[in-house]
């Protein structure tokens, strides 16, 4: 079982977390968004081998955060609380 560092609670078992999506997948705004931009936002995922930046939520405290981890070695490289701004 992996240990994920919640920025609020510290290291906790992976079972307490929920995957929230790719970090940096910014929601397009406005009426003139081209269809392929929408399709990219909704459906296209990088699925990288190696370092990945992802949004996770710690279900126990409700903290959403960006975690960088290696999808091969399962090493956690960093975890950062989301700021007021949309995580880029």
């Amino acid at each position: 079982m992996q240990l994920f560092p919640c920025p609020f609670c510290g290291p906790r078992d992976e079972t307490e977390f929920h995957y929230g999506g790719d970090a940096g997948n910014v929601r397009p705004d406005g009426a003139d968004v081209p269809i392929d931009r929408w399709a990219g936002y909704l459906y296209l995922r990088g699925n990288p081998k190696g370092t990945a930046r992802e949004i996770w939520v710690h279900m126990n405290c409700g903290e959403f955060f960006v975690m960088e981890r290696d999808t091969v070695t399962h090493k956690v490289l960093s975890s950062t609380a989301l700021g007021g701004e949309h995580a880029a």
């Binding site: 929230g20 279900m59 959403f64 007021g84 701004e85 949309h86």
Partner: peptide, 16 residues
């Protein structure tokens, strides 16, 4: 609730 929290933290900001 989770959806509300996600958009709060990921778009609007905690103090908004």
């Amino acid at each position: 609730h989770a959806r509300l929290e996600e958009w709060r933290q990921d778009r609007f900001g905690r103090d908004a």
